[in-house]
């Protein structure tokens, strides 16, 4: 691929079981096209799955849909810039305050009745850059992985 050739895909999925897997197909297609590498593609797929199921379960989205945008582009720079795959996951739910999400600890989770709450930690650990914009009109998670 040419680093000067951006490529973008838009996808809307319903809030329904396993629709997150449909979203990962776009990651595979764009990731292979931009020669991202197998392990990095799998990491983006995992992050997309987590962002989707977070939206499915916690957003309270009014239209029962989640919108995704997949974009391959390059940063401008003297060395030609770094190429990246960026995925935006948007819902129109009630939003949340990311600063109030506590980091889960395995030792505590082993003894706690509620063992979930790992999604944001996984996303932040697997992706190179993560931004979360959330308010009363919904949430957008922007996740970037560099080649």
């Amino acid at each position: 691929m040419s680093t000067a050739e951006p490529r973008e895909i838009h996808l809307t999925i319903p809030v329904a079981p396993e629709m997150e897997i449909a979203a990962t197909a776009q990651v595979a297609a764009l990731g292979e096209w931009m020669e991202l590498g197998r392990d990095k593609i799998d990491e983006v797929k995992m992050a997309v799955v987590e962002a989707c199921i977070n939206a499915f379960e916690h957003s309270g989205t009014l239209d029962h849909k989640v919108e995704l945008k997949f974009r391959v582009a390059s940063e401008s720079g003297a060395d030609g810039g770094r190429t990246f795959l960026e995925v935006d996951v948007l819902d129109n739910g009630h939003g949340f305050d990311p600063s109030r999400v506590t980091a889960p600890q395995i030792g505590e989770k082993l003894r706690a009745p509620h063992k979930r709450g790992w999604g944001l930690r996984i996303i932040r650990s697997l992706m190179d850059d993560v931004r979360i914009v959330s308010g009363e009109r919904g949430t957008m998670i922007v996740m970037r992985k560099y080649r």
Binding site: M46, V49, R116
Partner: peptide, 20 residues
């Protein structure tokens, strides 16, 4: 298995708790 999600892994944590 080529993909998992955190809900599935949370259930594996329950299994781990009972094993331990």
């Amino acid at each position: 298995t080529k993909i998992v999600n955190s809900i599935g892994i949370s259930i594996l944590i329950e299994v781990l708790e009972k094993v331990l």
